[in-house]
Computed example of a mutant assay.
Amino acid sequence: MRFALSAQHRDFATSLHDYLAGADTPGAVRAWGAGRHEPGLTILRGLAEMGVTALLVGEGHGGLGASPVDLVVAFEVLGYHVVPGPLVETAAVAPVALTGHAAQRWLPSLAAGKAFATVPVPLALDADIADVVVGADATGDAEFVRSIDPARRLFRIPGATPLTGGEAFDTGVLAVAAQLLGAGQWLLDASVAYAKQRRQYGRPIGEYQAVKHLLADVATHLELARPLVHGAAVTGSPRDISAAKVKAGDAAYLAARTALQVHGAIGYTAEHDLGLRLTKVRALVGAWGDGRFHRERVLAR
């Protein structure tokens, strides 16, 4: 048996990369954080046309009936390109959490990218644009809560029941782990590219052994995290999913710290795209259960 992504998986990832590379996601992220959603919504609708929001929706509701492995492939690319919006909630959690009449009402629209979902865990992402709140009847009186990541617009919804476990929760955790993996890979790629062009004492800084060691350490941690994320998508085990979230979070956080060290002062500027990933990684490490929560879940199982 060969445990590897299929040619279809790789082609799907490539098509998503190609689309997002030309979609100005950094500009959409900055606009989203300022409350201007249209650039980001345009990207989300484009992703819906490519099938991202329909992956886990059953064929009976207009979806693709795909597997969690397909979901992980997509969300790693979304994390790489730091796509804004409630995609975890819409594409990963809602298709699992919504059943019965709610599924009939909402899943076709969610699959088509005509509606978006949010989930209180306990805070709800982008509740101001969500059409359905899993665990609540409406978004009324939602209270805005500032995140360390300006593009993550969080809300506290009175009366909403937080999602804290079960298959839907685990699917959300898995999608976040894949996002962290993608964000960490972008940070590594950006750091390698910068180390090749930034010169100090007449040489590219990437030629110095100390910088090589820093980047090699990040690459190693990302490569160790990737099979955990993919393996968790195959098994669906809560233990495996929590282990994947911990390892992907640790690897992405190391990538963020190293990227900032390699880039130096320019990495602190608001104009540089590095900052978009730094704040995203820091927020996602604690989202859908922090490291302590998931380590305790692993130990309990």
Rank of each mutant, 00 (worst) to 15 (best):
G286L: 09
S147G: 09
R30N: 10
A103D: 08
Y253T: 13
V262I: 15
Y253E: 15
I129H: 08
Y201S: 12
V285P: 02
K280F: 13
A219C: 07
V82R: 14
R2E: 13
E49W: 01
R30T: 10
K196V: 05
V176W: 05
R2D: 11
P26V: 09
A193S: 09
I266T: 13
R297E: 06
R152L: 15
G172V: 08
S109Q: 12
A4N: 06
I129T: 08
V119Q: 03
V73W: 00
F3R: 10
F3E: 10
H294K: 12
Y80G: 00
A21Q: 09
R199Y: 12
D189Q: 10
V73K: 00
T171W: 13
A136K: 05
A97Y: 05
V83R: 01
A94D: 04
D240N: 13
D250A: 15
Q209Y: 12
A138R: 13
L260G: 15
G275T: 14
G267Q: 10
K247H: 14
E223S: 15
A255V: 00
H81T: 06
L278E: 04
T279G: 03
T258V: 12
Y201W: 11
D128A: 11
G33Y: 13
P108S: 05
L20D: 01
L5Q: 02
A111R: 01
S147Y: 06
D170N: 15
V69R: 10
L215M: 07
D149K: 02
S191P: 01
P39T: 04
A138N: 14
A252Q: 09
A102Y: 06
H272E: 15
A190W: 07
Y194A: 05
G140Q: 14
T269D: 15
G184K: 04
A66L: 06
V176E: 08
L188E: 02
A252T: 08
S237M: 06
V134L: 09
L228Y: 00
G182N: 03
K212W: 03
A21M: 04
A111S: 04
Q209C: 00
D217P: 00
R153N: 08
T279S: 14
G85S: 05
W106G: 03
I241P: 10
A97C: 10
T99C: 03
A233P: 02
R257N: 13
D24R: 10
T235M: 09
A142H: 10
L47C: 04
L260I: 11
L222G: 04
A270P: 15
G113I: 05
G140V: 12
P204M: 04
A259T: 05
R226S: 07
H230G: 00
E167V: 14
A142I: 04
A255M: 03
S6Q: 06
L276H: 07
G159M: 02
G275Y: 12
V173H: 08
L125V: 13
R282I: 11
R297A: 07
E76I: 02
R152V: 15
A136V: 03
V52M: 11
R295G: 15
T269P: 08
P227K: 02
G85C: 01
T220V: 11
V93A: 04
A48F: 01
R105E: 12
A248G: 07
V77W: 01
G85T: 02
F155W: 15
V262F: 02
D11L: 12
L228G: 00
A183S: 13
M1Y: 10
H213P: 00
K212D: 01
I241A: 11
I129C: 06
